[in-house]
Design a protein around this nucleic acid. Structure first.
Ligand SMILES: [Zn+2]
Ligand SMILES: [Zn+2]
Ligand SMILES: [Zn+2]
Ligand SMILES: [Zn+2]
Lengths: 119, 119
DNA sequence: ACATTCCTGTTATAAAATAACATAACTTTC
DNA sequence: GAAAGTTATGTTATTTTATAACAGGAATGT
C-alpha cells in the first residue's frame, strides 16, 4: 500500500484506516482536526489518536491531503498534484473555512533562492 | 503599556514579563517554543505557561514577534514593519534554523484576490 | 516455510495551549 | 485624594494536539 509512484492520484490502493480517514476529510469539505476525525470514526472502530495520525501522515505523503499548520487541521487537496518542488499557498476563508490552494510559480522562484541556501 | 500606535518600533513601553520574554526570543536568534522560554525564565520568576503565552501574544500584536506555525515556535522580527496588509513569507533554514522574512509584493497581489473574496 | 516489510491495535506520555479565578498595579474621572 | 475602571499578574486546573513504545497480524517475495 501507499504507492509513491501514484502520488496525487485518487488511489484505490489505500489501507482500510487510510480510506476511512480520507472519507471523513473529504466529507468535511474544510480543514478538520485529528481528534474530530477520531470522534467521527469512533463508531467505526478507530479508537486512538495514533491511528488517525498514522493515516493522515500517509495521506500527506501521498500528496492527497495537506496540513493547515495555522489550524492544526487537515484538508483534502482539490486536484491531483505533487507537492514536491512546487510551492503552494493555502487561502482559508474567514467565514466558511473553505480552503483554496494556489500553485504560485512566482513564489516558487522566490523560494528557489532559499532552497539553494539549504533553507 | 502595549501602545498600538507604536507598532513595529523597539518600544521602551513593554511590561516586565513582555520584556523578559522578548529578551529570550532575541537571545535565541531563531524560533523558540513557549515552553523553552518558560524553562529559561523559570529562574527569573516566570512559573507558568500562561504568563509566557500572554507576553508572546502581546508581542505579536505589537508586530515585533512572529509565530512560526509549522514549528509552534516564536521568532523576533528582524526589522520594524507592520504585519497588517503586507503579506510575509518565513523561510526557515533546515540546518541552523535561522529565519529570513520576505516581504513579497507579488504574493501580496496574489492574496489580494483572496481578501476580496473574504478569505 | 521463512524473512521482510508494512499496517494495526493498545497503553501511556509528552508537548502545546487555554479556562477560570483572584490579586495587584496603574489610569481616569470626579 | 478617593472611587471606579482598566490592564497586567499570579496560580491552579484542564483541554487540545501529538508522539513513544511495544506487541501482534497481514501481505509480499524468495
Ligand atoms: Zn495540494
Ligand atoms: Zn467562504
Ligand atoms: Zn515581521
Ligand atoms: Zn542556516
Amino acid at each position: 500500500m501507499l504507492d509513491l509512484n501514484r502520488v496525487g492520484t485518487i488511489p484505490g490502493g489505500l489501507t482500510k484506516n487510510q480510506a476511512l480517514v480520507l472519507e471523513i476529510i473529504e466529507k468535511a469539505g474544510k480543514p478538520i482536526g485529528a481528534y474530530e476525525i477520531l470522534r467521527e470514526l469512533g463508531p467505526r472502530g478507530i479508537k486512538s489518536p495514533v491511528q488517525v495520525y498514522r493515516a493522515v501522515n500517509s495521506l500527506i505523503q501521498c500528496g492527497i491531503v495537506r496540513k493547515v499548520e495555522s489550524m492544526n487541521a487537515f484538508v483534502r487537496c482539490t486536484d491531483a498534484h505533487p507537492h514536491r518542488g512546487q510551492t503552494t499557498i493555502l487561502a482559508v476563508c474567514d467565514r466558511c473555512g473553505t480552503v483554496v490552494e494556489h500553485h504560485d510559480e512566482t513564489v516558487d522562484r522566490r523560494v528557489a533562492w532559499a532552497e539553494q541556501e539549504a533553507f
